[in-house]
Design a protein around this nucleic acid. Structure first.
Lengths: 369, 369
DNA sequence: TTGTAGGCGTTATCAG
DNA sequence: CTGATAACGCCTACAA
């Protein structure tokens, strides 16, 4: 790289002041056409690119929204994996359908939504995953570089969240928790789970249902469980005190759970397994299929989220679709809103969900339109 | 938000100089324990967060890597879609397995890789999608805010790429093009496609094969086509001049292509369809299945990329897995490397691929280990 | 329409 | 170990 040119270099070479160069970028209409032309020329010539840092400092805003989300990938494993080596092409029979890429579609979609909405408003998006020992630094660095922050549940610890929320608008993508003062954007987890459970009970006549939960500290997982129990209760069925098992929202975790439930014979007199999310449901499905349990004939299985994999799995997974892209969009919209209206009360927006009846809960004559 | 505190506020309240406050963050070891404690206290008290802009300006580096990628979502449609409305829960039978979320798993995985590698080096990642009329501004804004840039193929036009590459390291995730001066990171598209085609020819005895291409301007799609023709040529088979069809790498595009090929009877005396990527292969598969064409019995279909959906589709799609996460990681690693060694020759790194033999090309006795 | 000048909040160098 | 004090590159009244 050549020495990076600045406004001064451009101004000098174009024979104008730095103010004019600045105007050329911020408000071209305020610059005479001929002058504009001259500046344009020099900018090309020099390969000038305005410094975002300088601009951010002077304008007191970065034009960037931060997005923070948790990661389930194993740090140590990342470190270990080599970036190279091996033959250029390897051919193998891939008989096992159970690959876990570690990717999280739900997060990817929400992030995509944030990018879309940010773009619509001329903002950029900065992503960060607080993992490892330096997690706090990651978050602090992010907070210092953005005008507002969107965070998924459990990505930032409560203390630090409180700290940075004093400086910039924070919107949490997940249900609010007790005494929580942030803006929230969430899907109708409760209503979706009630409707899904009702369907299993009313339309499929299933009565012996159990719930496979998510992480203890996930408010969404908790809300879904409550929706499940409420539907059971209202139907006059036995209400489980707690999930029959918990897993970490990953497919691998779902498989592990599936194996355990099978091994312990916990599935023997059960009609259905309602899972807290798709990935774990798919993992459970993997193991059931491998063990010869037929879904949905022997056991119904349902998920939650509506990721693409749930739609192409065999059997296709009945689930509740969250509007993931919209969650991300709305979160950013809310950040932007609060940037303008800082002093209004914290709000919680609940987006509608869609119960998608597919094959893993049984056949559908014409249940619903 | 209260008035944002600065180093000056912290320094004054802690009874130290701003230099010490700065040290507290950059090099805590250089500050006496007792002083450190005092500063820490005030930082908490005030809710102080260092300004990334000011820091970036003073330090002449932002600690951020930019990642630029194309988008296939329709801008007008985005604008139109409402963010709210509708009933809180909707229940419907979802009989059609053919949903296209518009998400691109390939990109999501590459981005995940960039984030991981950036994190390993203490960098943040800023993402941007140049779409719409302001595409140039998006890219320029990004370029001004980062220390280096990773771009996927076709995200940035050649002129602008040349412009910003004068100011910061640029790494392109895709094969190099004629007379191209950037660093590149790519998968072994050619070798992977040759090996896959060889497999179809040698192990399945398929001879009448056609290629479903990608976008005209995709170097990767082009390279894959060349791999295909090379294998055909070496096997002494008829070599198509060009792809039998082209589509835009999306599942919807694949379906459209599938419909056209079916309608025009182009599939009638064919053994197999080699597609340029998974999404389009899945789309083609959707239509074939709907039309009663049995895969692989009537026609073999293969993909390229190795996204998760290819693994759970019915039939499971034979494909070539690109190391997507590694592509992203390596791209960032290369940006970082060039940040230190600016004057070395442009390099192209080709990462190994894996041909995954699954069900969509026919049964595998024990072809390969 | 254009120029002047005073910040914006850090980092980094150099004394002490 | 700590404190002054220049940069750093741009924005934005205010003036001309």
């Amino acid at each position: 790289m050549e020495k990076t040119p600045t406004v001064y270099d451009v101004a000098e070479m174009a024979g104008v002041s730095i103010a004019t160069v600045s105007r050329y970028f911020r408000n071209p209409a305020a610059v005479r056409e001929t002058t504009r032309e001259r500046v344009r020329e020099v900018v090309r010539e020099l390969g000038y690119v305005p410094s975002g840092s300088a601009r951010g400092l002077a304008a007191r805003r970065t034009g960037t929204i931060g997005v923070c989300f948790p990661s389930f990938d194993d740090v140590a494993q990342i470190d270990a994996r080599r970036l190279e080596g091996g033959p250029p092409v390897q051919v193998r029979v891939d008989a096992d359908a159970h690959v876990d890429t570690g990717s999280d579609l739900y997060i990817a979609e929400v992030v995509r939504g944030t990018e879309i909405e940010a773009w619509r408003h001329g903002f950029a998006v900065m992503i960060a995953v607080p993992r490892g020992a330096a997690a706090h630094n990651v978050v602090e660095g992010l907070a210092g570089r953005v005008d507002g922050l969107v965070t998924l549940a459990r990505a930032i610890d409560a203390d630090q969240l409180a700290h940075i929320a004093r400086r910039l608008p924070v919107v949490v993508v997940a249900g609010p928790r007790e005494g929580d003062v942030y803006d929230h954007v969430t899907a109708n987890n409760h209503g979706g789970m009630v409707a899904l459970t009702d369907h299993l009970i009313d339309d499929h006549r299933l009565t012996r249902l159990e719930f496979v939960g998510g992480p203890e500290d996930s408010p969404d997982a908790q809300t879904r469980f409550e929706g499940f129990t409420e539907a059971m209760l209202l139907a006059g069925l036995g209400v489980p005190e707690r999930p029959i098992a918990r897993c970490d929202f990953t497919r691998a975790g779902g498989r592990e759970t599936g194996r355990r439930l099978l091994a312990e014979g916990l599935l023997d007199d059960l009609d259905g397994l309602v899972c807290a999310n798709d990935q774990s449901a798919l993992g459970v499905l993997d193991e059931l299929t491998a063990a010869g349990v037929r879904v949905p004939q022997d056991l119904a299985v349902t998920g939650f989220d509506g990721i693409e994999a749930s739609n192409v799995a065999t059997p296709r997974l009945t689930t509740v679709r969250q509007p993931m892209v919209e969650l991300g969009r709305l979160a950013v919209a809310q950040v932007l809103h609060r940037l303008n209206e800082p002093m209004t009360e914290p709000t919680t927006r609940v987006l509608p969900v869609e119960v998608l009846l597919r094959d893993s809960c049984g056949p559908h004559a014409g249940d619903v339109a």
